[in-house]
Design a protein around this nucleic acid. Sequence first.
RNA 1: GGGGGCGUAGUUCAGUUUGGUUAGAACGCCGGCCUGUCGAGCCGGAGGUCGAGGGUUCGAGUCCCUUCGUCCCCGCCA
Length: 592
Amino acid sequence: MGDWRRSHTCADLRPENIGQEVCLMGWVQRRRDHGGVIFVDLRDREGLTQVVMSPEYNKDVHAVADSIRNEFVVAVKGKVGMRPEGTLNDKLPTGHVEVMVDELKILNNSNTPPFMIDDFTNANEDIRLKYRYLDLRRRKIQNNLITRHNIVRNMREYLYDKGFLDIETPFLTKSTPEGARDYLVPSRVNPGKCYALPQSPQMFKQLLMVGGYDKYFQIVKCFRDEDLRADRQPEFTQLDIEMSFIDREDLMELLEGLFIQIFDRVKGVKLDRGFPRMSYDDAMEKYGHDAPDTRFDMFLKTINELVADCGFKVFREVVAEGGVVKAINAKGAGQKYSRKDIDSLTELAVSLGAGGLAYIKVNEDGLQSPIVKFLGDSADKIVSEMNGEPGDIIFFGAGKKDIVNLYMSKVRLRLGKELGLIKEGDYSFVWVLDFPLLDYDAEAKRYVAMHHPFTAPLDEDIPLFDTDPGQMRAKAYDLVLNGSEIGGGSIRIHRSDVQEKMFSALGFTPEEREYKFGFFIEALKYGTPPHGGIAFGVDRIATILTGSDSIRDVIAFPKTQKATDQMSEAPNNVDEKQLKELCMKFEVVESD
RNA sequence: GGGGGCGUAGUUCAGUUUGGUUAGAACGCCGGCCUGUCGAGCCGGAGGUCGAGGGUUCGAGUCCCUUCGUCCCCGCCA
């Protein structure tokens, strides 16, 4: 670079800069060689500027420009000029000007990149992940990461303004038995013992409340050793918040304000206060899912009463055996959905555990369906109950409740998408409230915490600890955006006696309780204030706000579905010497 | 642990259903021409372990088995 310094970015120059001597540095997006004049689009993260090397203007510079190629890093000094009439480019913000180059330095050359870095080609993800540093140069990814930056910046600014303290908590922590699998870190100075990376800073943030820091937040990595999905990575980022002396209304009000600010400043979208609310039970009944996509209606409806005595054996038996029959009216799908489309929808349902996907097509001249002859009178009642009109198709799921909900919720989403009920740029928030406190784990034959074991039950439900724990409801709340759970939290248990009851309900022996959570129960005995909090998935929020399909598109260096890094090839084998220092020996055994 | 999709030139794909001559296209790359382009244009050229291994066959990109990679989903993720 010598003593050269940039005077502008590649997005700065405008007609008002004409005549100025400037110095730009960046990557060669593209070189257009006309035999005489050579044009180069110079790129940095701000934008593109055309620089011009003409043999008439400067012969030496033109000769050097002959050798440059895509992705070379170059510096130019020159004069800003107006482009000749008829050659203005309105697609670029800098498209009315260009830099006539007086001096050109090649700061570094580049191998031909394995894929084109532009807006038009789209290499597959595996090659993009292997050369992630090149993928990061693409405008789409850069915009994603800039949007993510703006989201995080607004989170910080909003919470600073509200008097929150940003406090760090440890990464090397104690493994807890509940929840996700832990990533373990062996301790060299404590041979045979391990730390666990936090699944979330849950206990630490509660202990900060005990410590008197009544408004805390942190934007922090969390780690869970579970299988990956399009919206799940083994390390992900949470906005973690905890407050004392509040109830859930206080939190919801605070957080609505946060999202109103983020959407306003990041997307220019004005949101209204008072996000809709829905009970967990309602969400499961109408959407079949605890993270309902409320961008469109088209609800599921349980029709057990209508089919309990009907002539269709499948429905009748499901009701008799305690299952559910749920219906959904695909309004106006009759025209659009061929037999093949219905088969494809059936395949989706079957892949998720359905026996099949019954349907009734409502035509002008009557009902068309493989099951209508069995249903008899019930068919008309069902159609009327579902507001069926000519042109509609009513789909049915029947079976065990959670399986029906699973596939009917996916069927609903697919219908919503295919029937065009979801518009680009729609953002629909909903609070989901009153979750069950506990969930029965048939395999482990015990209750597990639906949210986590520190969640407070509704006050009126506390007596149920001793009689019917399964019926208890929690002071928990999830914030759902466009069918994606972006955050969840609860009012916590702040009394040690209630916390002990909770651990008992979860089937911990006093010894286990003491070994795993003794320090925490002890802390609750020293004047713990009422408190509660929430955690948001920063990656998921960024995914939605950038319109991305995958969480990987908003993470600079994401991992594949097998939790590997294709670029660095992590995880890898470690030296025998490193293991020895840890007093460890690997024995890889087949898992079953 | 299970279900499904994909894997062919540097990249994105066609070809696989129904096995048959020398495996194609576009973009990129290299060379030539070209002084106002902006996904520049024209001409020419190079470039292939058809993911890997095994099998069937006179013959396999194509059929079968095994395996690896990658993506989506179920389980799992308090």
